[in-house]
């Protein structure tokens, strides 16, 4: 005896078209163009960055047959496994940035001139501690 087949809940997540991430990509590209053009008088660099961001947005919008693109382009994630992969990728990116920031921090300390890397380490470390406390109370 087999269980009755339930009604389909909703369309398969992979068929959804992402909109937010590609739009944010386009918006960032336009912002890069405006900042480099108006603030730095370097429209060439701005146009190059806009072209990169437009290409990125196009891949995010139309490259949905690839799961990696689905993972990068959907916010919120499509399902629980995608959410887990995104969390782990975020942690990997955090540790990569942290590594570079620590190297930069010690370089600044050695020169006796705290700067951007010192600020990044401070903000990152403080955020990590506060987030741990808050998430512990919520879980």
């Amino acid at each position: 005896m087999t269980a009755p087949t339930p009604e389909r809940s909703h369309p398969a997540p992979g068929r959804q078209r992402p909109t937010i991430v590609p739009l944010v990509g386009v918006a960032l590209g336009v912002a890069m163009l405006l900042v480099s053009w108006l603030a730095a008088d370097a429209p060439g660099i701005g146009l190059a960055m806009l072209a990169i961001m437009l290409s990125y947005a196009a891949v995010m919008r139309y490259g949905q047959r690839f799961e990696s693109v689905q993972l990068l382009s959907h916010d919120p994630p499509l399902d629980e496994r995608h959410a887990l992969i995104q969390q782990r990728a975020l942690a990997a990116a955090y540790f990569a940035v942290l590594g570079v920031a620590l190297i930069g921090f010690f370089w600044e300390i050695a020169r006796g001139a705290p700067g951007a890397f010192t600020l990044i380490c401070f903000v990152g470390g403080l955020t990590h501690m506060i987030a741990t406390v808050i998430l512990r109370r919520r879980s």
Binding site: T5, P6, R8, S9, H10, P11, A12, P13, G14, E67, Q70, L78, D79, E80, R81, H82, L84
Partner: peptide, 26 residues
Amino acid sequence: QADLAEVQGVSRNTINSIEVGRYVPS
């Protein structure tokens, strides 16, 4: 796999990952 994914509301890749033991579902 696509049929089962659609009914369960997850991606086909997730069903495949569960079947091969690469992903443990919640």
